[in-house]
Write a protein that binds this DNA or RNA. Structure first.
Lengths: 205, 205
DNA sequence: GATCGTATGTTGACAGTGTCTACATTACAG
DNA sequence: CTGTAATGTAGACACTGTCAACATACGATC
């Protein structure tokens, strides 16, 4: 019984995704750094060199995992903003909460995405890295400026304030450096809301 | 010629610090993760197990390195604030710039300090972790509230806005995820100043 | 000053890792 | 049906973190 998905023979059928899923599972168990390519292969039920048919490197696998995370983050933020048609401020808060929530719920992958582990490697795929998420914020802010609820400045500049704030909050929490019960969604939302509203107060007209 | 410092015999004399320095040097060369305990020992000119007489673990060595970083960060921020007696706003900006500058100038160690690599281990020494730096910010803000230039809110709340913002900025820059020339001090200060003044605008009375 | 415990440093070994090369099996195009 | 590329395997290599056993040097005690 080689595996659960697709084909059942010598060839796996969808090993690439299976490896990514296995890696993600192991990543949340043992933190980043505690993840070994061989164990990933073991969990996926293949030999220890099979991953090299799909990823040139261990770093490449981690990078693919990070890419997944960036996509999910972007989706979470835009979805959250889209679900709140009550104007840019509320959209911004919703996006911020979604951002931090995603970070807390996927702490290990968040560290992968923004931690320096892949820093050197990320350069190549850097075009991808979180730029979409940042752009989402900027879009909200632009609409807010047009609507006259935000100060008339460089959108990028205002977006940067929001982005760095949320990013910092997320990183501090995922690193466990903030005395807050990340398991309590209400407390989390309140904290994020507090920071976000302060940011908005600074941004607002 | 076993070494340059202190004694020259079988016993090193100050191996602990020598190891930390060697580790720091290697850390900036090859990023975090690319640092091997054995190479640290090699650089320090001792056998590959000598470090175990001073650090229980590889993680323990990295943790000590991180602790050094926290101390330096705190010192840099308080020094910067102390050097600017022109009121809390300017002090806050100075501290923010010092914070980000320290992060940029010690990118690898910053990733060590706040990245998740040590997350599980940091719990023990967590009391140390950046709390001092945060407290420094909070002190400035408290004096600002007393002086009536900042809004009358929970100091912790306002400090959190400033802290997350600076922290996020620092982390994004050290991870190379911000399109900014970190080598150009002027551009860096301007960027930090921009974000900081926006934060202050939100905090100010 | 000799002695002895202890701190410090060394050697050797072990399992585990990332990655390379060579080989085996399968899918598929002609 | 045949050959070629894609995919997976086996074995090897240097390297790593860590443990146990041993060697050396320092410092207090008699």
């Amino acid at each position: 019984m080689p595996n659960d998905s697709s084909k059942d023979g010598y060839h796996h059928g969808d090993l690439r995704n299976a490896l990514l899923s296995a890696a993600e599972g192991l990543l949340v168990q043992h933190g980043p750094g505690g993840l070994s390519l061989r164990e990933v292969a073991r969990v996926a039920g293949v030999s220890h060199t099979a991953p090299y048919r799909h990823f040139s490197d261990k770093a490449a696998l981690l990078q693919a995992l990070a890419r997944r995370g960036f996509e999910r983050l972007h989706a979470a933020m835009t979805d959250a903003a889209a679900g709140v048609p009550h104007g840019p401020e509320q959209q911004l808060i919703a996006a911020g909460i979604a951002c931090v929530r995603h970070a807390v719920n996927h702490a290990e992958i968040t560290q992968l995405m923004f931690g320096g582990t892949l820093a050197s490697t990320v350069d190549a795929a850097g075009d991808m890295s979180g730029r979409d998420a940042f752009a989402a914020l900027q879009t909200i802010i632009e609409s807010g400026i047009s609507a006259g609820v935000f100060r008339q400045r460089e959108p990028r500049e205002l977006a940067l304030v929001a982005w760095t704030s949320m990013h910092g909050l997320a990183m501090l929490m995922t690193a466990g450096l903030l005395e807050v019960d990340t398991g309590n969604p209400a407390a989390l939302d309140q904290l994020v809301g507090s920071v976000a509203s302060n940011v908005i107060y600074g941004i607002a007209r």
